[in-house]
């Protein structure tokens, strides 16, 4: 068995087009997860007990069940309630919900990393709750959150192949399709795996760069 570079060259344009879909799905899913996470963490810090419980439960449930089944759930169950989304939108929503739970956890950890004394100082200076968040707490909570969010984005990138299960024409779907058409899986699947590797290796320095830009002067190495 050998690796055919001719075949690789022939299918590369198809794979790269599919890679664009993969990147789009990752970015859209990431945007949704940032918002979902924010809603969940707000719920977890709410004054109402039931809301705190509900948010906590939603977060635990979304994190403990497989993304694949969540995708199926949205894909097969929502139409029964009269909501019909395209496969892409279904997949991206599922990604956003699943990783929104992880984003919520990252936000929570960041907020809790701000020492109590900072809150107490804000109260002693008579800041309102909102002003304390805006001027005192968030500027300190954000830097540690950024790397976690970066990891979430990379995880999402590597989970986009799951959307193939509901016929989203992302990279893995196309690679698999080529394979079954030509009875030749070696080139498309290997190439797809390498493209994921390149994308996640490229993402890491990008996240580092953003992280460094956001980090306040005093904590820079």
């Amino acid at each position: 068995m050998e690796f055919s570079f001719d075949l690789l060259w022939e299918i590369l344009p198809q794979l790269l087009r599919a890679t664009v879909v993969t990147i789009e799905a990752t970015l859209a899913g990431f945007a949704i997860s940032l918002i979902v996470g924010l809603v969940m963490v707000s719920g977890m810090r709410a004054r109402q007990r039931w809301l705190r419980f509900l948010s906590r439960f939603a977060m635990e449930f979304l994190r403990a069940t497989p993304l694949l089944v969540q995708v199926y759930f949205l894909f097969f169950v929502l139409p029964g309630f009269g909501i019909t989304l395209s496969p892409f939108l279904t997949g991206v929503t599922a990604l956003g919900l699943h990783y929104g739970a992880y984003a919520a956890e990252a936000y929570r950890a960041g907020l809790e990393s701000v020492p109590r004394g900072q809150w107490e100082a804000a109260v002693s200076l008579n800041y309102s709750r909102l002003a304390a968040y805006r001027h005192i707490v968030l500027p300190q909570a954000l830097p540690p959150i950024v790397p976690s969010l970066g990891n979430i984005a990379i995880s999402m990138l590597k989970d986009t192949p799951i959307l193939a299960a509901v016929t989203v024409t992302e990279l893995m779907f196309v690679a698999n399709e080529i394979g079954s058409e030509r009875f030749q899986y070696t080139e498309p699947v290997t190439a797809a795996a390498l493209i994921y590797l390149v994308l996640s290796l490229a993402a890491a320095p990008l996240i580092n760069f953003i992280d460094r830009r956001l980090r306040p002067e005093e904590t820079r190495a």
Binding site: A175, A192, Y196
Partner: peptide, 12 residues
């Protein structure tokens, strides 16, 4: 193994 997708590894 962290850089390539699990599903890609599985299919491979």
């Amino acid at each position: 193994f962290r850089g390539t997708s699990l599903l890609a590894q599985l299919f491979w």
